[in-house]
Design a protein around this nucleic acid. Structure first.
Lengths: 146, 146
DNA sequence: TATTGTTATACTCTATAACTATA
DNA sequence: TATAGTTATAGAGTATAACAATA
């Protein structure tokens, strides 16, 4: 690198660059599932919260109601998610058998992906991150919709 | 939060959420400058590397050559950046007087923004982050262009 | 041949406002 | 009135491929 970049001493910048590296690695790991990161996270939240609504998934993932629509839509088209009407305005979301298989596969891939980084960091530094990052998030928790 | 979300125990997910919180805070802090985050970072790199090329800026910030074009273009339109031909295919970028004022203002805002979070974390945790985050980045450094 | 800047284009995620049909 | 889902649209960042001019 021929140029200096004093942003390197900024926490926000370091966070963004580190996050980008992990996201790129995750994308590679998930590439042949043909699922976007936002779709995978949605799949996993539905997996562990059967009969949740898509607004609830959005709240858990900080994705706005309006932006959940195409995500759920695509997951249903692909036969990974099912939904049934609850009360005429809300739906209960569940995974199909295929969705469960896909979720299991995704989790295994995420495990490998995470392992690569936590091993690199070592237990102490990894735990320090798990203590610090929620502090940053709590500073101003992302309010979805509102 | 009514739903469980086991992604909370994932480093990549925590990084992404924490980064989003800081980015949102920074955007608020920079809002009335009418500069996007990518434009501000570009401005600051040019400030400390007068006569650099836009490809070099891109390398420092992990922004691809093609994506630097509209950034530099807008900064010049706004009278913040000047460039002069070097050798017929590359330019030397500098800040105008107005660009320097803007850069100083931006740095002051970023200082305030960063302070909010580093104070929240405390010196020990902040330093732990500055040690760990570059380790994550180094895992697979983002190759720009290539 | 390799490099700098450029154009065109597409994708992903995010944001807002407004609408419907319910409750 | 408030809520769940939806539509439409815009913005921001990122990605690829290809080209011209130049070195």
């Amino acid at each position: 690198m021929t140029l200096t970049n004093s942003l390197e001493s900024r926490l926000g910048y370091q966070l963004r660059r580190a996050s980008a590296v992990m996201m790129a690695d995750l994308s590679r790991e998930l590439a042949d599932l043909d699922l976007r990161p936002a779709e995978v996270t949605t799949l996993l939240v539905i997996a562990e919260n059967p009969d949740c609504s898509q607004t609830e998934v959005g709240q858990a993932l900080a994705i706005k109601r309006a932006n959940m629509v195409p995500i759920i839509s695509r997951l249903m088209e692909r036969g990974l998610v099912d939904r049934r009407r609850l009360d005429g305005r809300s739906h209960a979301l569940t995974l199909t058998d295929e969705g469960r298989k896909m979720a299991d596969d995704a989790v295994a891939r995420i495990d490998r992906h995470e392992m690569r980084f936590t091993e690199l960091l070592g237990r102490v530094d990894a735990q320090a991150l798990f203590r610090s990052l929620p502090v940053i998030r709590a500073a101003r928790e992302v309010e979805v919709d509102g």
